[in-house]
Design a protein around this nucleic acid. Structure first.
Lengths: 217, 217, 217, 217
DNA sequence: AATGAATGAGCCTTCATTCAT
DNA sequence: GATGAATGAAGGCTCATTCAT
């Protein structure tokens, strides 16, 4: 009936949409299969299980998102402020790029609300490498800063970006759909960069302050 | 069979646990009723609907959390920096206080992943009032700052706090359960306060640094 | 709340409407009680049972119908043809009178489809007395006719009248609502009288035609 | 488990019995499925709905009954009296034939008490064609009779036959089971034919008496 | 006497899964 | 390899009924 060789691929796509729209339990394998144009038994045949399909779907969604905005290989000698700017820009794009399937966000949040085995794989394959990059940048900038404090700073940076993604419904309800839309990848990246560099005591753009963030504790 | 006078209260508690653990669709009214010690028809009797019960559960969870850590009525003349410190501390406590039911977090994230009508009520009753407080503090501190920029700063502040709550599974998997636990309400509050005040150019504690956060856009 | 002294009466009325509209199983005691303005437990309190209420409702409906159009006490010497004319007219009125609650018909048919104990009582209290009257008239007209044949004639007469009542939906669908309405009590009575008297060999009215059914309308 | 190839057929049979015995609302799909020897989900699988199953059941019952006693194609020149005799005989057989499932009657009456969409289809497929045949016969016999009067005569004829079927419980209670059984298809046909032909002014059989209804049995 | 809060049985339906093809 | 007809478990909800007041 349809090209059968990439039925699993089509199932993955269909599953992403349906899982995001209806939730794991709310989604039915029938709808997924129909939308994918495969047999009712397709899910069980290709993925053994509804749950296995879900996990694969989450992983595929994250992989796709990460691959679309890769972190560059900075040439040696690149100043760490520049790297940080790049990092925040890319991370914001990953979070807020408009051409990503709208269900990635939902799937990701679901996984946060109720982690499955997909979460661990996600951390291993995507989160940890990304965290390592940010950690290296911060270490280069503030080699004398204790690890724990550096970690907190990293969380503050990504936390600002993640906010717009994770709490989109609240942002929209709070400031209106129109205003919410103005917080796009570019604007968020610029704001977070400026906010964070100032916090870290780095001179914004070309200024020369170097202070760290106060002295918590 | 059991004390009957507060069956609805018990249902709300049981529903919170089950909804958080299994999700809306995954939860069964049967399990909720059993855990609450009321009849199978209890949900329909007291809340008319599984959905209505869910909404009430989400609202109750947020209400409880907000009421437990109310924002103080600052006496006139309180310096805005002090207010901001208080706000961040209270907000962090709301997010990370350890004596709150563990399912509040899950329920909240689920609502973000797939907003129901509970979300709008939540924004109206809890989010907006809280946002107004923070907005007033920032306006007092930086009256000349454009609204949009002030909004972004507010989001940066709460975003840092929310991060630990929303992405707890990732934090735990990334840095280990032990380290993750050190990011408690107090430490997060102190870090976010210092980070944000520095970013905003306010002197940490009593120091004398000055500039606002660069010049985004 | 409402006048409580005739709550059972009001229940009977409400039950008639609801039973006829929804059927026995389809009707809910809740709706009946609400419509009657009595407590949810009213049915069980006043009639012990949903079923008992049903039976009482059927009986009340038939009783009301019969009492509204009583068979006259003919003065001695009344010619049997006259009695037959009267009987058919009254019977048609009972069947087709327009000011009777529309649900009598439905309740009656339900009882035919699935007789309850109401049926026996109905036969005893209403059908048998009526049948006795018709039987006496026919016996007076055709004393030499065997009982069995006289019974068949009686059935033929009432059968014609009952037809319009029992199969109203079919009549309406077959000839249209407008035409169906023309078969009212009077026209049916005249036709059935003429048809039956002709069949029985009695001269219609006083004319001597032996041809078809008189001149209804 | 059981022969699977005609599960829908078996469901139709079982449904007929249960619907007739318990009514639409009173019948449970569970009982129907069990009696049919198919899975609990069988009704929804084969008929989508309990309601759809009901409609199909009513239609099947009527179809079966009609097909069992078809109206013959009379050769040209057949005298209309003969056709009428045949018609009444066949119609009576349809109504009173003993080898029909006893639930056909109940199902039919239920449909009269509370017509569903099955009623319209029934009229279209079964009633109207049959009515057309009788109408044509009467038109052939009494071409000068006004339509309305011919319609009333047709109703009188079928009304007599239908009586025994529709009001079987009353007949039985009134004259006893034994006597009721004597009103079988043949006797009713003979009586109704004689009664009606006499009413219509046609000579019964070939005699010229205008007296009562022939000599059935 | 009359109420209505609370119950538990049970109904229709849907769903993920399997197995013969 | 892939299919889809058929299954059985279970879910949300409704309903008649009761019992303490």
């Amino acid at each position: 009936m349809t090209t059968k060789d990439d039925a699993d691929r089509r199932l993955l796509d269909a599953a992403g949409q349906v899982f995001a729209a209806k939730g794991y339990e709310g989604a039915t394998v029938r709808e997924i299969c129909e939308r994918a144009g495969v047999n009712v038994a397709g899910v069980n045949y290709y993925f053994r299980d509804k749950e296995r399909l879900y996990i694969e779907t989450v992983k595929a969604a994250c992989r796709h998102q990460t691959e679309q905005f890769p972190i560059p290989d900075w040439p040696p000698g690149t100043p760490p402020e520049q790297k940080l700017r790049d990092f925040v820009r890319i991370f914001s794009q990953r979070m807020l790029s408009e051409n990503q399937a709208p269900w990635h966000r939902q799937l990701f949040l679901r996984e946060m609300a109720q982690p499955t085995s997909a979460c661990a794989e996600l951390v291993r394959d995507t989160v940890r490498p990304t965290a390592a990059v940010l950690g290296a940048i911060l270490e280069e900038m503030f080699p004398e800063l204790p690890d724990h404090k550096r970690l907190a700073c990293a969380f503050s940076i990504v936390g600002q970006c993640l906010f717009y993604r994770a709490f989109q419904p609240i942002v929209t309800l709070l400031v209106g759909e129109e205003t919410a839309r103005t917080f796009n990848a570019q604007l968020v990246a610029e704001h977070v960069t400026a906010f964070s560099l100032a916090a870290l005591g780095a001179p914004p753009k070309s200024a020369k302050r170097k202070r760290v963030s106060g002295r918590p504790k």
